[in-house]
């Protein structure tokens, strides 16, 4: 039954992702689509915010706009969380101000689309904060990633131009044409299937044992839908989608798992439709899906075979669907959970870490494909050098200046993860002389999740304190914006180049052989960077040390 559900979810994702990818391509190109009725609202937003969204500008002006807008979101969320207790409405349970370092971590976490949570929503947040800070940031952070991807595609398409589109135009349309309609559909599904969505306070009741207990209610379906659609992952409740209100049954679990995978896969297809590169896109989809399905098989076997690991899992989902969710959520930079990852087998934890270390197997909305393209650029360069052909990608010559930035973008990821883990292994509160393999894995996971803007965690670190809040906050920030700014610069450079006609000396980047080179480069970069830490983390436990 569980395996059948996994197959059905995957079929549903791949059947719908291709038409969705075509639709998103139309949205990016400004071609007529069925959501054109949103145009008056978009124009009103542009006028109200006094931005000129209809003229294309250079990559540097787009990057500056992206950063300025995100700085505004950071200030907005940080201040609102600090004054939460003084806001007189939508706070039926009287939630007070958030502690400053926790507010810092929470806001950076949601601005960067990470949604790593060192708080529990039902304990620390008012309904106002859940909607105006958490829900709002989940929309705009996902839209930032999608808009950055759109700018990247425009840069690849342009010839001899210094303009790469307009960030504001893509940003607003990503919300009105993609995220809003999709999250509306998913939230209606969730409400119909039993997820609460209201603005009442906590309800008290008497348990079967005769004790008094209270359960928090609120706009759960609203927050949960955008959490999955935008590869955000930040749960309404502390236990995320393992909570019976946030993910009530087998069907909601399937709907949410579908929502996790849908947009990341659709955005890969968008690449082909937007740039008219169907063959290359087919190769990308095959590479990503081969790795994703291998990881899924490994994790499902790890959780269901042998000891049939039910620890930390909801019986309404079972171990196979918990494993599949784990792979889906770490592959797509989502980070939501429907089981306790800390209780899973070490091999499953190693797979989740590998997913986040590569961070491009579908990846987060928009940024996943940007990360993947960095591997593609590196592969084209390496393969070109190896066989003595001119390194080119879609007719654009790859020069050393682009390679320098691509390498910087790819290497910032291991630097943040390994640097953060090394520092925490020595300085984190509560870390003594003898760090066990499992404790080390927890720290490694925390920083991998932060740098990959994933947000899931093994827990058990008691991480709501100044050290973890600030260190992971910095890592999330740098792990988000450097890998966006670098590729935008590369695409700015590509936009200014003209197409070089293909010759006998041109490397074919759309064939099977080049696909293997991409996989090789991904594995080599990740393995060389991360194998040693995996060996003294989950693999050490797996091998019985």
């Amino acid at each position: 039954m569980e395996i059948a559900a996994i197959v059905v979810i995957l079929i549903a994702v791949f059947l719908t992702a291709k038409p969705a990818g075509r639709y998103i391509s139309h949205v990016f190109k400004g071609e007529p689509v069925f959501t054109d009725f949103m145009r008056p609202l978009e124009e009103w937003i542009f006028r109200f915010c006094r931005v000129d969204a209809h003229h294309e500008v250079s990559w540097s002006r787009n990057a500056a706009a992206l950063l300025k807008l995100n700085l505004l979101f950071f200030a907005w969320g940080f201040i609102l969380l600090l004054i939460q207790g003084y806001i007189p409405f939508l706070n039926p349970d009287g939630k007070g101000a958030m502690e400053p370092s926790l507010a810092f971590h929470t806001v950076i976490s949601f601005v960067t689309n990470t949604n790593q949570q060192h708080y529990s929503g039902e304990v620390d947040l008012s309904h106002f904060s859940q909607i105006v800070v958490i829900g709002f940031l989940q929309f705009v952070s996902a839209a930032t990633g999608i808009a950055a991807y759109a700018l990247f595609l425009v840069g690849l398409k342009k010839r001899g131009s210094h303009e790469t589109g307009n960030f504001y135009w893509f940003f607003v349309r990503s919300i009105t044409r993609i995220l809003l309609p999709l999250s509306l559909v998913i939230s209606i599904f969730l409400v119909v299937l039993g997820t609460p969505n209201n603005y009442t306070g906590a309800k008290s009741f008497i348990t079967l044992e005769g004790d008094s207990a209270s359960v928090s209610l609120g706009p759960v379906a609203t927050v949960t839908s955008i959490k999955q659609v935008g590869t955000n992952g930040g749960g309404y409740y502390g236990t995320n989608s393992a909570h019976p209100f946030e993910n009530p049954n087998f069907i909601t679990n399937a709907v949410e798992n579908f929502a996790i995978l849908f947009l990341p896969v659709a955005l890969v297809f968008t690449f082909g439709f937007f740039l008219n590169e169907k063959k290359l896109t087919r190769s990308f989809i095959l590479i990503m899906s081969a790795v994703f399905l291998s990881f899924t098989a490994l994790t499902v076997i790890s959780e269901t075979g042998g000891s049939f690991n039910l620890e930390g899992k909801e019986v309404r989902f079972g171990p196979a669907l918990s494993a599949f969710w784990g792979v889906s959520t770490t592959a797509t930079s989502n980070g939501s959970v429907n089981s306790m990852l800390d209780s899973q087998q070490p091999l499953s934890q190693a797979v989740y870490l590998a997913d986040m270390m590569i961070n491009a197997i579908y990846g987060g909305v928009g940024v996943g494909m940007i990360n993947f393209m960095m591997y593609v650029i590196l592969s084209a360069f390496i393969a070109g050098l190896m066989v003595g052909r001119t390194p080119e990608l879609m007719g654009k010559k790859i020069e050393s200046k682009e390679i320098k930035i691509a390498v910087l973008t790819v290497l910032i990821h291991p630097v943040l993860i390994l640097g953060g883990t090394a520092i925490s292994s020595h300085f984190a509160p509560g870390v003594g002389e003898g760090v066990s393999f499992h404790e080390f894995t927890r720290m490694l996971y925390e920083f991998t999740s932060a740098a990959a803007n994933n947000g899931s965690g093994l827990e058990g670190l008691a991480d709501n304190n100044g050290f973890w809040n600030i260190s992971t906050g910095i890592v999330m920030f740098l792990g988000r914006f450097i890998p966006i700014i670098g590729p935008l610069a590369i695409t700015g450079s590509f936009a200014s180049k003209n197409i070089v006609p293909g010759t006998e000396g041109t490397l074919d980047t759309s064939g099977f052989a080049f696909g293997l080179v991409i996989v090789g480069v991904m594995i080599i970069v990740s393995a060389l960077s991360f194998f040693p830490v995996l060996a003294i983390g989950p693999l050490a436990i797996f091998t019985g040390h």
């Binding site: 250079s58 540097s60 930035i405 700015g492 450079s493």
Partner: peptide
């Protein structure tokens, strides 16, 4: 006070990444 310091840290991070834009522009000559 702690909140102000953390706000300043956030601003500093943005300024650092913002500083990459002119650096990369110069490197790529675009």
């Amino acid at each position: 006070m702690e909140a102000l310091l953390l706000m300043a840290l956030g601003l500093l991070l943005y300024v650092m990444v913002y500083g990459l834009i002119p650096f990369l522009s110069k490197l790529l000559e675009v």
